[in-house]
């Protein structure tokens, strides 16, 4: 496991910056809503879904109904179905790590794991597990820090959360380098922008996933033919 952690750590540094900061923000907001560090720890270990945890603070503050909470979670997190679908094959052999790998599949962990291979000589399952665990550690630590520090931060770190989109842009550039992936990248960008434009920022992600699925199937021949050229 130590080898896997060593191989995984440099890869997770951008996520570290993003998660520590977003986690910190979550801890602060949760604290302001009247829920202390114990709650932050419970939510960041038990739910572990960035955007949804921010929504959950509102649910807690309003004392929302359980059905309403369930529906809200379904809406905000349905995109995770697509991550699981994509990773299912690669997690097939993961044995005792499988439940944790499935549980910890956040946007960022998915992006890292679906687009990278374990380095030579490192067991793939352990590498997946190491990336997943490190990422969750950053998130939990950030939440706890935010909860303890409240608003008194020694530095103004506003904007460090931009490491997340920056990481995704870098991964997009890397995909673009592989000619066989280019058409898929374009279809994804198009579907996302189209749905964002039509449906707005709050509701576009799941329709965009569905549109991506449809477009990939529709253009299957072209997508696959790109593979021969590469």
């Amino acid at each position: 496991m130590r080898g896997a952690l060593k191989a995984a750590f440099p890869l997770t540094l951008p996520v570290m910056a993003g998660y520590m900061f977003l986690g910190l923000g979550f801890g602060v907001v949760l604290n302001q809503a009247g829920f202390g560090a114990g709650w932050a720890l419970l939510m960041s270990t038990g739910i572990y879904a960035g955007a949804m945890q921010y929504v959950a603070v509102d649910l807690l503050a309003q004392g929302a109904g359980l059905i309403q909470s369930a529906l809200m979670t379904l809406m905000v997190n349905s995109r995770h179905l697509f991550y699981g679908l994509t990773m299912a094959r690669r997690y097939a052999d993961s044995g005792r790590w499988k439940p944790y790998l499935a549980f910890s599949l956040t946007d960022e962990t998915f992006a890292l794991l679906s687009l990278t291979k374990a380095p030579e000589g490192v067991c793939e399952t352990r590498f997946f597990a190491a990336v997943s665990m490190l990422n969750q550690c950053y998130w939990v630590l950030g939440s706890l820090l935010g909860s303890f520090l409240g608003q008194v931060l020694p530095f103004d770190l506003t904007g460090i959360e931009f490491s997340m989109p920056a990481l995704f842009v870098v991964m997009l550039v890397e995909q673009w380098r592989q000619k066989k992936a280019r058409l898929s990248v374009l279809l994804g960008l198009f579907a996302a922008l189209f749905c964002l434009f039509i449906l707005g920022a709050e509701r576009f992600s799941v329709p965009a996933m569905l549109l991506i699925t449809g477009l990939l199937l529709l253009f299957k021949k072209q997508v696959l033919s790109g593979e021969d050229k590469a």
């Binding site: 991550y83 998915f110 687009l115 898929s184 990248v185 374009l186 994804g188 960008l189 991506i212």
Partner: peptide
């Protein structure tokens, strides 16, 4: 091909 397609969505 999903991973390559989803990365654009994640950027947005």
């Amino acid at each position: 091909f999903m991973p390559a397609a989803i990365i654009g969505l994640l950027v947005i």
